[in-house]
Nucleic acid binder design. Sequence first.
DNA 1: ATAATAGTGTCTTTCAGACAGTATAGT
DNA 2: ACTATACTGTCTGAAAGACACTATTAT
Lengths: 289, 289
Amino acid sequence: MKLANEDKGFLALYLDSKYEKPSVTVDAVIFRLINKENKNYRKLPEKKLQVFLTKREYPPFKNYFAAVGSFIDLNNELSESMKLCVKNKVNLDNFYHEQLFTFGDKSRDPRTRVISISYLLLTNEDSVLSNGEWFDIDLKQINCYKEQKENGYSQKQTINLTLKNENSVLENELLIELEKNSLEEKKQIQIKNSTLAFDHIKIIFYALERLKNKLEYTDIIFNLLPEKFTLTELKQFYEVILDEKLLDANFRRKTSKMVQATNEFLTGRGHRSSQLFKHNPNWTMLNLD
Amino acid sequence: MKLANEDKGFLALYLDSKYEKPSVTVDAVIFRLINKENKNYRKLPEKKLQVFLTKREYPPFKNYFAAVGSFIDLNNELSESMKLCVKNKVNLDNFYHEQLFTFGDKSRDPRTRVISISYLLLTNEDSVLSNGEWFDIDLKQINCYKEQKENGYSQKQTINLTLKNENSVLENELLIELEKNSLEEKKQIQIKNSTLAFDHIKIIFYALERLKNKLEYTDIIFNLLPEKFTLTELKQFYEVILDEKLLDANFRRKTSKMVQATNEFLTGRGHRSSQLFKHNPNWTMLNLD
DNA sequence: ATAATAGTGTCTTTCAGACAGTATAGT
DNA sequence: ACTATACTGTCTGAAAGACACTATTAT
C-alpha cells in the first residue's frame, strides 16, 4: 500500500475543502440488566433491561433525553471517539461494544446534515454512571397487518417502545414496514411518535434487535451480568431480553457449555441454596469441543 | 418531535462550521455468482463467486482497483448516494443491498480524514456492468495459531484473499486477531499486504463474512441467482460461497421450503433432466408455516 | 453401455420441547 | 409444614448427518 510518486504530488494539490462535508457524530446505546426491588423475602427479584440516557443541555432538543453521543474528533479513531465521549460524558470506562449502524437521514438533525455512527454498549449492574438516568425498557407490539401478495407478502407493524423510570415515562411509537417479494426485500422503520431527541428511539430499537439476535447465537449476554450468577438468574435475564418464558431443564442443557461452575453457593433465600456459575470464555458458537 | 421555540432561535445562531468535519464516502462491494466455461458436455460448469472492481482514474491509488464508491452528496439520503454512485459509475440499477459497516481509520485515505459507509450489493449473472472488471474470489487460510490462556484464548489467523481474472491477479493478505477472555472480546483485522486501493480489501473481507453468515439463516442467496435454477445449481452456489461440500439429500430437505417447483425442466445435458425451481419469497427464517 | 447428474428412502444421532419428579433452606 | 426456588431424569418428535439406492439421458 505504498503510494506512487505521482500520488504524492497530487496530495500537495489536493483541495480538502472542495467537497461539501457532513458533520459526524458517534452515539452509544448503553444497556444493562438489573434486579428490581424485592418485596417477598423468598421470591427472586424481578429483572429489567435498562438503557442509559442523558438529558440534552443545549438545543436542539434541549431537555429531551438522548443516547450518549458527541461530534467526532478527527484526531481519534471512531471507536476512540466513542470511548472518550462515554468516558467524559457519563464516566463509563469498561464495557463491551460493537458498531451498530450508521444513521444519516437528511433531516435527522435540524441544524445541518449530521451522520451518526452508532454503537451498542453493554455493562453490568456494578458500574456507576453519572450525568443521566437509567430507563426500564418495555417493548410492545400494538398491531400487525400481514398481507399475502401474488409474489410474496407485505407487513406493517406498530410498536410501542416505552422507557420508564421513577422520574419520567417516555412513550415512543415506531412503524415497521416489511416488503418481500421476488424482486425486492425491504425493511423500513419509521418514527411515528417520539419523546426522545433526534431519531434516537430508532437507534435504540436497532440496538435492541441486535441484542436479541446475538443473544441466540453468541455469549454476548455475559457482558450484562456480574461475574458470578446462579443459573436461574441467567435464565431470567434471557427471559427479560427475549420477552418469553423458557423451560428450566432445557435452558440448563443449552447453556451448560457456556458457563463453568464455581464452588460457591448463594444461601439465605428461604429455599434450597443455588450454585454460582461463571462465564466460560472458551465457549465458541461452533462448539468445536 | 416538534422543536421548542427556544430551539428555533438557536438554529439561526448555529455555526455550521465550528466543528471540523470529515469527508464521507459510500463504497459498494458488488458480488455475483457465475458459471465458468464448460469443457465436458456432460459435466456441470464450475461456479465462482465474483466481486466487481473499478480501476481508479485519479490519485490517490491511481490505476489500483477499488470498490465502487464516491463522496456523498449532502442532498441525498445515504442509500440514495450509494445507488446513484453505482448507477453512474458502473451502470447497475437493480440489486439487493444492505449497509455493511462504517470504516473510518485515521489513515485509511492519504488525502484527509475519510469515513466510508460501506454497502453489500448482490446481483446476478444477467446484469451487465460497465467501467470495471469482475474478479473471481479465492479465500485461503494460510495459518492459524490458537493459544489457550488462563481465562480464555487468543487466536491469530493469516488469510490470503486473491482476486483473479483473465487480466490480473490481485493477492492480498489479512491478519485476523481474536482475543477472548472474561474481561474482553476483541476482533481485529489488519491488512498485511494489499494490492487494492485504500483499505478496500478489508471491506471486501467484511462483505464476504456477512454474506457467508447470512447464507446460513436467510434466503439472501436468491439475490445472486437467475429466476429459475436447478437444485443442484443452488447447492453448488451454496458450496462455492461456504467453501464446503454439502450432501445432496440433506440439502434438498433443508432448502425445500425456500423454493417452489416450476413445471419446466432443463434438458440436453447428457443425463437425466432436472426440474427448474424458483425462489419462494413467502419463506421466513422462523418457519412460521 | 456409460458417465454424470437427478432424485428418493431410511437409519442414526443429536437436540429441542414438554413435563414429571426430587431436593432443600428459612420462616 | 409450607413456599419458592434448585436441580435431575426421561419421553417424544423434529431435524441434521451419513449413505445406499434408483432413475434418466446424450453420446
